[in-house]
Structures are given as structure tokens and as C-alpha cells.
């Protein structure tokens, strides 16, 4: 069997004395839509940041398409302080910055929208084509790369078309309504030509109708670009609707995993979300 697209092994992230993500192991297969859910402060975004290189995990490894992209072991003072449940340290140390991880084919969006504020919708997407350039500073300045430049522009336009933002391409990115800004962020991530798309709360701040439309949109782009999608989400309707599998974490630990039906009936998950009734 082929390697899973993303494979986390015992990923632990500790900030000082707080273990934000504890011994998280999970895998995502090709062209799956997998959701990571959990109550507020469960460590979902931290897990995301460990995968995308924003943080280097304290311990554990991340494999992408069979290649080790992130690996670390507790070092220095952290060795004494280490409080993760997985006591075996990883052997190698592999650190990658977010830009290199994006180049490998993992693109992400942000929980709080991060668009390039002074630029138009089109320019926002066009920037995301920069990483695949073959021109250098001189050929780009002297316009010897106009063939590539044309391709970049065409690619950016096709991405805008795919998310239905072609009509507003010359508007300032921040002047768009909220839902469109979300789509633009996804278009921008798609323009980096990813194979794995990580969505950090794509439906945050959306009403039920918008959320439903977003769900359809995510499934649509998954099929269209043959993507593997990993998302964090709070809207249970959306998650149950579109995910093939779900991982649930609470206080950094994985408490359940399975298909949506299994998760819905899982007593641990219900306890984590609603608390325990006390006499």
C-alpha cells in the first residue's frame, strides 16, 4: 500500500510546563477529507502549526508522502521538563521552515484570515505562484521571463475561476465580504499547487447557509484538484457532512477517532464537548 499523504507519529508540543499537543498520532490517506475537532484550547491549531513548520514540535515525527519533513527530540532544559506521555525520543532532528513545507506541496489557510491587505484579489493569488518560479532576479527584472510570467498570470486566473472570484479580481482583497475572503484564501493556497490542503477553521464566523455552501465548495475542489484535505472545524454539521474520518482531541490528547457516525455516538466526545453531569 502506498504511503499515507500525512503521517504524524507521537507528535508532542510542550510550551514551558504546558503540553499543548500530547502524543498525537494520525494518518491521512490520499484524497481523503479528514477533520480534526476538539473543544476550544484543545491544541488543534498547535497541531497544525507543528505540521506546517510554524512550530517545531518538542518530540515526534511528521512524514509527508513517506518523507520525514519534521522531527525533533526534547533538547536542553526541555529534557528535564518534558512531560509528554510518549517517553521515547525521536532519533533524528529535521526542521523545516513554513516556506519549504509549502514548496513540498502542503498549503494552508489561517483561522483569522491573513490576506495581503494592500493588494487586489488577483495579486493575492498571483503571489502564491512565486514559489514555483524558475526565473532569477535578473531575468525577472529584465522581463526575460515573460513566458513564465504569462503562465503565472494564467494559473492565478484559473484558480480565481475555480473558486468563482473571477468577477471581483481587481477589487482590493480586504473590500470583499467575509465569505469571499475565505474563498480567496483557499484560492491562494491552491495556487501554490498543493497535494495536501490544510484548512484552519474555514467556516469560522459563517452562518448556517454560508457554512453549507462552503461544505459543498470544499468537496468540489477536493474532487476537481484531486486533493487531500485536512481541516480543523467547530461547525459539527459541516464536519459530519464532508469528512471521511474524524480525529477528536481534548487537552492535547487524542480521545477518539473514526467515521462521523462513530464519533457522533462516542461518549468520550460528548463528555469532552458538554462536560459531565454532577450530582
Amino acid at each position: 500500500m502506498a504511503d499515507p499523504v500525512l503521517d504524524l507519529r507521537h507528535v508532542t508540543m510542550q510550551f514551558g510546563g504546558v503540553v499543548a499537543v500530547d502524543n498525537l498520532s494520525m494518518h491521512i490517506d490520499n484524497q481523503e477529507i479528514v477533520a480534526l475537532i476538539g473543544p476550544n484550547g484543545a491544541g488543534k491549531t498547535t497541531a497544525f502549526n507543528c505540521i506546517t513548520g510554524v512550530y517545531t514540535p518538542t518530540n515526534g515525527q511528521v512524514y509527508y508522502e513517506g518523507n520525514l519533513i519534521v522531527s525533533n527530540q526534547p533538547q536542553g532544559k526541555m529534557r528535564q521538563m518534558y512531560a509528554g506521555t510518549h517517553k521515547e525520543y525521536s532519533k533524528e532532528i529535521v526542521v523545516n521552515t513554513p516556506d519549504r513545507i509549502t514548496k513540498m506541496g502542503l498549503a494552508r489557510t489561517f483561522q483569522n484570515i491573513r490576506l495581503f491587505k494592500t493588494q487586489t484579489v488577483f495579486e493575492n493569488v498571483l503571489i502564491a505562484t512565486h514559489l514555483h518560479k524558475t526565473s532569477n532576479l535578473f531575468t525577472a527584472t529584465l522581463r526575460l521571463n515573460h513566458k513564465e510570467e504569462t503562465q503565472m498570470r494564467a494559473h492565478a486566473l484559473s484558480m480565481l475561476e475555480a473558486v468563482g472570484l473571477l468577477d471581483v479580481k481587481d477589487e482590493l482583497a480586504t473590500s470583499l465580504p467575509y465569505g469571499m475572503q475565505r474563498r480567496l484564501e483557499i484560492a491562494r493556497a491552491l495556487a501554490t499547487k498543493p497535494r495536501l490542503l490544510l484548512l484552519d477553521e474555514p467556516a469560522a464566523g459563517m452562518n448556517p447557509q454560508e457554512t453549507e455552501a462552503l461544505g459543498k465548495f470544499i468537496v468540489d475542489i477536493q474532487k476537481r484538484f484531486e486533493l487531500t484535505i485536512f481541516l480543523i472545524e467547530h461547525h459539527m454539521d459541516l464536519v459530519m457532512d464532508i469528512s471521511d474520518r474524524i480525529y477528536v482531541i481534548d487537552f492535547g490528547r487524542q480521545i477518539a477517532t473514526g467515521v462521523p457516525e462513530e464519533i457522533q455516538g462516542n461518549p468520550d466526545v460528548i463528555t469532552a464537548y458538554l462536560g459531565v453531569y454532577e450530582e
Binding site: T52, V54, T97, P98, D99, R100, T102, K103, A107, R108, F110, R114, L115, F116, K117, T118, Q119, I127, A128, H130, L131, R188, A189, T192
Partner: peptide, 17 residues
Amino acid sequence: KAIRDDEIAAEAMGINL
């Protein structure tokens, strides 16, 4: 310009800061 507007987003777009 992307770096000026948002470093974190620029880096996530594969730009080596």
C-alpha cells in the same frame, strides 16, 4: 510586497522570508 503586508502569510505561500 507580500512580506510587507503579512510575513506569516507570505511564508505560508512559500516565500523564503
